[in-house]
Design a protein around this nucleic acid. Structure first.
Length: 259
DNA sequence: ATGGTTGTTAAACAA
């Protein structure tokens, strides 16, 4: 007898603004795990009560104005970890927890702004720290899923116009190599287990009617450990929330596991 | 066309 578990990730670009969308989505999809990024609020502002009303527990690692990550689940949330251990970072980009025997990480990878920026160097350093930490996590947790906004389009098929973006942040070779090093730890890009088509995106810039023209990137990912790979049943990008009034610029990605 | 939009917070900064 097996149970279906639904694990999702969504960069909401301000939970203050997007809470109605998130509550509607939680109520319609009833995921077992929803990881959020860019909540952009201090923990004192996080809507624990509204989520509890809908039947969900939550843990949040937030800060004012920027960043902020959360894990939401109807199940008990245990062994909560904030930030990357041993990596000094003023920015709130990681929360991890164990839910239903699965180790779950909600990650908001640094954007990097442009390849000649100090923020890009921070991005590469941050990714190196993430890799070291995930290597250690894998040793403790066979069933590990790392969900989030990676701010990396792993392949040219994940970018609407590879020629125009060549060498830029989100697609530059050093970032893609960092992403590959995560896969080399033993992770799988769960979306690509099911869908090899180009033009499947999770983020579209607000400008230039990019969503309508499908000028996007696939930068939100659900990486799963080897032990979870054979349990993956489906992974989809749900474009419906991106079509709503006042949407986030990202839309949810959701993995279904048969456990 | 080196543009455009959104969010936070009050003129930029980040994405």
């Amino acid at each position: 007898m097996s149970t279906a578990l639904k694990l999702a990730t969504w960069n909401v670009n301000s939970l203050t603004v997007r809470l109605p969308h998130v509550l509607d989505w939680l109520n319609s999809q009833r995921p077992d795990v929803l990881c959020l990024q860019e909540t952009k609020q201090e923990d004192s502002k996080f809507p624990y009560a509204a989520l509890a009303e809908a039947g969900f527990n939550a843990v949040h690692n937030g800060q004012k104005t920027y960043n902020g990550v959360a894990i939401i689940s109807p199940h008990p949330i245990a062994q909560v970890q904030f930030d990357i251990p041993g990596f000094v970072d003023a920015q709130k980009r990681i929360v991890a927890a164990t839910i239903g025997g699965i180790r779950v990480v909600s990650a908001y990878v640094v954007n990097g702004q442009s390849v000649d920026s100090d923020k890009y160097q921070y991005k590469l350093q941050w990714l190196a720290a993430l890799q070291d930490w995930l290597a250690a996590e894998l040793k403790q947790h066979d069933r590990l899923a790392v969900l989030g906004d990676y701010n990396i389009a792993p392949d040219d098929t994940d970018c609407h116009d590879p020629a125009a973006w060549e060498g830029q942040v989100l697609v530059s070779p050093p970032e893609r190599e960092a992403f590959q090093r995560l896969l080399d730890l033993g992770f799988h890009d769960s979306f690509r287990l099911f869908n090899k088509e180009a033009g499947q995106f999770s983020w579209w810039d607000y400008r230039m009617a990019a969503f309508r023209r499908n000028m996007g990137m696939r930068i939100d990912h659900i990486l799963v450990s080897e032990a979870l790979r054979s349990h993956c049943l489906d992974c989809i990008i749900d474009k419906a929330p991106r079509k709503l009034e006042r949407p986030s610029d990202h839309t949810p990605v959701m993995l279904t596991l048969g456990i």
